[in-house]
Write a protein that binds this DNA or RNA. Structure first.
Lengths: 348, 348
DNA sequence: CTGAAAGCGCTTACAG
DNA sequence: CTGAAAGCGCTTACAG
């Protein structure tokens, strides 16, 4: 519990002015080798830690930090991106004093993504938060930002983009968790069905990785058992219903496990009821209203939360730290695979 | 994104000095009704929010906030309280600039608890963090603190203490979650065993509440099903082994669910192996080394984490907010019932 | 009851 | 290459 030593004491001990101490601390130019070394020695010896309150007061008052958030438009049947936005707003509330300002931009397809990207680039933001939904367009944005030294944080999905900063859940691992959970419910003789509900944009990278993780769980945890796993890709624009093949699986007497790789698990229970199928356990993603309703009714056993608010929150905080303290560690984060059941719902 | 309005602007608009604005903001005495109302109107109109960086710079430099942490001694076979301490240390790191200082005190029984409590009271700390393990002694401490207006935060266990501040997991709910999880694994025809491993201090309040929650799950979720649940209280000082009655349950062919209400779930798998019992699913608490080992070996299916580091962290932050901003909301917290399996272990 | 002023520790623009 | 000084927004001790 050594008492606070400040830049003033350092200056005194090293026989320099506080301005010089500051230059050394921030590794700025214009300090003679000799002086720098002397000051550095004192800094080390005293274990100096900067007073962030003072630093931020000064900084926040002078230079604003402007962050652009480019996310999918919230539509009637797709409210998910409200949540990262809530997290962003919370972070802005925390950091408003310290000069952080955010502007929102919305996209709905590759064209609008590119258009909004260009608007953002034109305004010279200090940092950008977005989601890498369109491979080419995202890459173009990242390259542009890399040239300008503008940090970018990508939420929700990890895609193959060299050197990019991701704040998202490891979808492969989430799939393995889903495997573990369903395996507990349906056992090694169970029949497993992976349901990819595909929307207009095609199969999402996250869904692919989740399915891979799910299958990897059974391959590594029960090697040689040859657990029966089927995949159903179903387009969301048609009313979901079942093919004869699926019908056959569902009539199977064994315990069944259904893994829905996106946030629409709630469509499944209705279909099962329609065909009087039972002994089915469902695991899905995301705490949307419909899924929660199913959890409460015990129609879904487990939901996996990817903590979208936290993603937004961490992205803004990470950018802030990077921009103010050159600390890049907060630009990436592995979001926990949070398991939700009916009983811990309101606590998670 | 309205631009920052500070106490200076408020003062100008209300035709008073900044000192007066400050008095109004902090509801301090010595402002005429008329002036106060005028200033309040301006504050409301402008939506003033205090700059916390400035406030804290000023405050932190002047008055230190001294917090005493009174927790169980860490022993060879009981390292749990390292974890809340880690959380406390993290909070202190975050808040050191802002004047927060912590001293640790350790107890091992009611006598040492009281002794250390008295030491703490003698030193006039600004706030106290402890654990309410001894009913009478805790009550005495709380009453003393209440007289002095010293805030106290209690970790780990919620006990019947009027008006106390708890930061802990809802043990009853955690028990319900355990019920849900084991029920998923062993089903309604399963045989369930609640294992209370009792140490020298007797059955802990948390264990009692967890068992109640576990039983409540079956009562409310499967009313009338009369699921078979047995309780085994076993003292930890003798080598754990099984009575003839327990032996009979274990030989039962049905799927079995074992709920260990404390952090010693890891003792169970060895016993099961010794008696060649299988088809048993185990749920326990806490991510200690031994339990994690069992999780990795697939001997334990689920662990429930009560996030001890977070408890310590939140306690210090909560006290800090209360002491600096009279905001008591952080003095209580309901810690999520976090579910851990082998596959999400390193992400939670 | 109210105001004027000092100062928290840091950063920066300016002067030399 | 280095120093002296101003000022971020708030809180408080002091003066009136």
């Amino acid at each position: 519990m050594e008492e606070p030593v400040g830049i003033k004491q350092i200056a005194q001990m090293a026989n320099v002015s506080i301005g010089t101490v500051d230059r050394v601390l921030h590794r700025r130019e214009g300090v003679s080798r000799h002086t720098r070394e002397r000051v550095e020695a004192v800094i080390r010896k005293t274990g100096y830690k900067k007073n962030t309150a003072a630093s931020r007061l000064r900084l926040g008052a002078h230079k604003k930090i402007r962050i652009a958030v480019l996310i999918p438009e919230v539509t009637n049947n797709w409210g998910y991106w409200e949540l990262p936005k809530c997290g962003v707003e919370k972070a802005v509330e925390d950091l408003h004093d310290l000069g952080v300002r955010v502007s929102y931009y919305y996209f709905s397809d590759p064209v609008s993504f590119t258009k909004k990207s260009e608007q953002i680039l034109g305004k010279e933001f200090d940092g950008i938060v977005t989601a890498p939904f369109f491979a080419e367009e995202s890459k173009a944005l990242l390259e542009n930002c890399s040239d300008r030294n503008t940090p970018v944080v990508l939420l929700d999905t990890r895609v193959a983009l060299e050197g990019a900063n991701f704040i998202c859940q490891d979808a492969h691992r989430a799939g393995m968790v889903a495997g573990r959970l369903l395996y507990g419910l349906a056992g090694e003789n169970g029949l497993y069905i992976v349901v990819n509900l595909v929307n207009a944009g095609g199969l999402h990278e996250n869904n692919r990785q989740r399915e891979q993780g799910f299958r990897a769980f059974f391959d590594t945890d029960l090697p040689g058992k040859n657990v029966e796993i089927h995949t159903v890709d179903y387009p969301l624009d048609r009313p979901f219903d079942i093919s004869p093949e699926i019908g056959k699986w569902l009539k199977d007497k064994r315990a069944k496990g259904v893994f829905v790789t996106n946030s629409r698990a709630y469509v499944i229970p209705g279909i099962l009821r329609k065909y009087h199928v039972d002994n089915v356990h469902i695991v899905g993603f995301d705490l949307n209203r419909e899924n929660l309703e199913c959890l409460r009714n015990r129609d879904i056993f487990f939901l996996i939360n990817q903590k979208p608010e936290e993603q937004g929150y961490l992205a803004v905080r990470g950018l802030f730290r990077y921009l103010t303290e050159k600390d890049a560690s907060g630009l990436q984060a592995d979001i926990p695979v949070e398991i939700v059941v009916r009983e811990n719902l309101f606590t998670v």
